[in-house]
């Protein structure tokens, strides 16, 4: 039997159920009530799908970590 001490670190897995909605009309698909102009990938991965995910500025790439990365001549710059 393990006795917990003050400095123990707990690693757990939590189960989340992100809500997803597609609305389709006349050749247009609305994702979660927002016309999909770019949605953060980790919005899904973290189960934090917002009603209005912020659109991605032109020229900005989003990594799978959800970071915004600006690329210019192969140099990656993290913007906040």
């Amino acid at each position: 039997m393990k006795k917990f001490t003050e400095n123990d670190i707990f690693v757990n897995t939590i189960k989340v159920y992100p809500k997803v909605r597609f609305f389709i009309h006349s050749g247009t698909v609305l994702f979660n009530d927002t016309r999909n102009s770019g949605v953060l990938l980790n919005d899904f991965l973290l189960g934090a799908t917002g009603e209005n995910p912020s659109p991605v500025p032109a020229g900005v790439i989003i990594t799978e970590d959800g970071e915004y990365l600006l690329t210019e001549d192969g140099t990656f710059i993290i913007i906040e």
Binding site: I9, N12, K15, V16, K19, V20, H25, S26
Partner: peptide, 29 residues
């Protein structure tokens, strides 16, 4: 919903809703 003027079906609209299932590792201190 069609892809051009001849095939468009503007009277119809469709809604799909579901919940995903995702496991997230967490660290608690």
């Amino acid at each position: 919903t069609g892809s051009n003027g001849d095939y468009l079906t503007p009277s119809s609209s469709f809604d799909i809703e579901f919940d995903g299932l995702n496991y997230i590792q967490t660290l608690t201190m």
